[in-house]
Write a protein that binds this DNA or RNA. Structure first.
Lengths: 106, 106
DNA sequence: TTTATATATTGCAATATTACGATATAGTTT
DNA sequence: AAACTATATCGTAATATTGCAATATATAAA
C-alpha cells in the first residue's frame, strides 16, 4: 500500500499531519530557519546556503509552498521567498493546543 | 535515492525533522490526541478506537515510541501507553522557538 | 539577439512508508 | 496444560519520498 487512509481521520488530524510532514525533513527545517533569519530571499540564496542540488531545493520549496508554510513572489527573473506568517502561527497554535497533559502512568 | 542526507544538517535540524515526522501521519496524531484525552490506556484500547488493523496500530505506536513521544510499560499481558511529557513539551518548545518573524516580503 | 541568470519540470534510481494477513510471543485464565 | 487475550514481528504489495542530471522556461543583461 504506502497510501495514507486520510478519509478515516478528521480534517484537523489530517491538517496537523500535513503541516508536520512539511517540516519532517532537515532541509526544509533549514530552509525555514534561514527564511526566518534573513526574512526575505530569492531561491538561489537558499541553493547557495544549503548543500543540496538546485532541483532538490526547488522540490523542497514546492512542498513548503504546498503546505502553505512559505510563499514566493516573482521579482524580475528571480522568485522572492518568505515565511507565510498566518500558517506559521497556526502551526505553533496546533502544537500548543494539544498541551494539557496530566498522566501519571509509568 | 529516497535517503535523507542527515549528515549535511545540524543535530537540531535533524531532531526537529524526526519529531515532526513522528507526527506526520493522521493516525499518529489521533493516537496522541487519544492518549492526551484518556491519560493512560492499553494498546488494545487504541486498536478499538482507530479504524486500522492491529499490526498497523502497533507499527505506528512503535514509531511514536522511537521518537520518544510516548512510552509503554508492561502491565500483565497488556502494555500501558502514555505521553512522554518531557519530549512532548520539547516539541512545543521547538516549534515555539522558531517564532520571531518580521518579514514584509510579498 | 545572443548570452547569462534564476527557477521549474521531467525522468529515473534508490530507499522509505503504509497497511495488513499470517504468525509468533507472552502473560492470564480456566 | 489448553484456551484466551494482548501485542509484536515478518513478509509483502502498493505507493511515496529523496536526490539529482538533464532539460525546459523565462526574464535580464550585453
Amino acid at each position: 500500500m504506502g497510501i495514507t487512509k486520510t478519509d478515516l481521520f478528521t480534517e484537523n488530524q489530517n491538517e496537523i499531519a500535513i503541516l508536520a510532514k512539511a517540516i519532517a525533513h532537515p532541509a526544509r527545517v533549514a530552509i525555514i530557519e534561514y527564511l526566518i533569519k534573513v526574512n526575505v530571499c530569492i531561491c538561489n540564496d537558499i541553493v547557495n546556503e544549503l548543500p543540496l542540488a538546485q532541483p532538490t531545493i526547488s522540490q523542497h520549496l514546492k512542498e513548503l509552498k504546498n503546505a502553505g508554510i512559505i510563499k514566493g513572489n516573482i521579482e524580475g527573473n528571480a522568485i522572492c521567498y518568505c515565511i507565510n506568517e498566518p500558517v506559521f502561527y497556526k502551526i505553533q497554535g496546533l502544537f500548543g493546543a494539544i498541551l494539557p497533559i496530566q498522566n501519571k502512568c509509568c
